[in-house]
Amino acid sequence: MDTERVRRAYASVAELYIGLFGTTGQVHADDLAFIERHLAGCPGPVLDMGCGPGHLTAYLRSLGADATGVDMVGEFVDHARAAHPGGRWLLGSMERLAVADHRVAGVLAWGSVIHLPPSELDGVLAEFRRVVAPGGRLVAGIFVGDEVAAFDHKVTTAWRWPVDEFCARLARAGFTEVERLHRPGDATRRPHAAVAAVAPGGVRARRVQRLFECPADPRQ
């Protein structure tokens, strides 16, 4: 993924994007329920990777999850800090997380892996697996299609995945699928799916005082 190109593309439409998608009222109830089902009860830190305006991070926190939002677009992080002052927000990329191995109980990647070419997806899923503790969860939201294919997303090029193929990539990274949700498209939304997977092992993540190896941002 050309990270800088994607960052600039979202930064250029950040205000519009926030207006269209920046609250949980704009998220389908089935999607919110899926996220709650798999991440609300995590007994340790949860990362919302590519958190955008921060609404899903705030939603998880409202359910009791120890969630931190991470995004590479400064405009999104600034908005999230202003709109949800009780949360934690960091600038960062999913391709290289400043987190020690097996330190998090869950990862939410809701639409944040859609801009990864197939050749780069495995590396990011492996990075998620590195930071997730045994028994921890990954929830991913993706666009779906009959074959792996790029398409002209309104912000920048994105990819559709057959759900079975995406789940095979999760398995390759060391996750085990536990549930999937498929929703057809409508007049305003493309077909998409949600997949929940677990990192095998019997011991789930403990709460830790210092999740990130980098210094804390004083504005958090």
Rank of each mutant, 00 (worst) to 15 (best):
93 S>T: 13
1 M>P: 08
46 V>H: 02
135 G>D: 06
88 R>K: 08
83 A>D: 07
217 D>Q: 05
102 H>S: 14
45 P>H: 11
26 Q>M: 14
89 W>G: 05
109 A>P: 09
105 A>T: 03
94 M>C: 11
16 L>N: 07
201 G>Y: 03
204 R>N: 11
99 V>I: 15
188 T>Q: 12
11 A>M: 06
75 E>D: 15
143 F>H: 11
60 L>S: 03
17 Y>T: 08
157 T>R: 04
217 D>L: 08
14 A>S: 14
172 R>D: 05
156 T>Q: 03
154 K>D: 10
214 C>T: 14
125 L>R: 03
20 L>Y: 01
172 R>S: 12
34 F>K: 03
17 Y>D: 05
43 P>G: 09
51 C>D: 07
70 V>F: 02
130 R>Y: 05
132 V>C: 14
24 T>Y: 04
148 V>C: 04
28 H>Q: 10
176 T>D: 13
67 A>W: 01
27 V>I: 15
130 R>W: 06
156 T>H: 08
150 A>G: 06
71 D>Q: 09
80 A>H: 01
32 L>Q: 05
20 L>V: 13
86 G>L: 07
183 R>Y: 11
182 H>I: 15
106 G>V: 07
134 P>V: 10
213 E>M: 10
82 A>F: 12
162 P>S: 09
127 E>Q: 02
141 G>N: 01
218 P>V: 13
144 V>H: 02
81 R>C: 09
207 R>W: 06
63 L>H: 00
45 P>C: 09
76 F>Q: 03
145 G>D: 14
201 G>T: 06
23 T>E: 03
103 R>K: 08
175 F>W: 04
174 G>F: 02
190 R>N: 14
144 V>S: 07
128 F>K: 06
23 T>W: 01
131 V>P: 02
72 M>I: 15
49 M>A: 15
19 G>Q: 10
88 R>H: 13
69 G>T: 07
111 G>W: 06
59 Y>Q: 05
93 S>P: 01
190 R>K: 12
37 R>F: 07
210 R>F: 10
208 V>T: 14
191 P>S: 12
118 P>V: 14
143 F>L: 07
214 C>I: 15
34 F>Q: 08
8 R>D: 12
12 S>K: 03
199 A>D: 14
170 L>R: 04
116 L>R: 01
178 V>F: 08
161 W>P: 02
30 D>A: 14
155 V>H: 05
167 C>D: 03
2 D>V: 13
184 P>L: 15
135 G>C: 11
208 V>F: 04
178 V>S: 11
210 R>T: 14
200 P>A: 10
145 G>W: 01
105 A>N: 00
119 S>P: 01
21 F>T: 15
191 P>F: 13
105 A>V: 12
51 C>V: 09
174 G>S: 07
6 V>I: 13
188 T>L: 11
216 A>G: 10
27 V>R: 02
58 A>K: 00
55 H>Y: 08
35 I>G: 00
5 R>T: 14
120 E>C: 15
96 R>K: 12
117 P>T: 12
148 V>G: 02
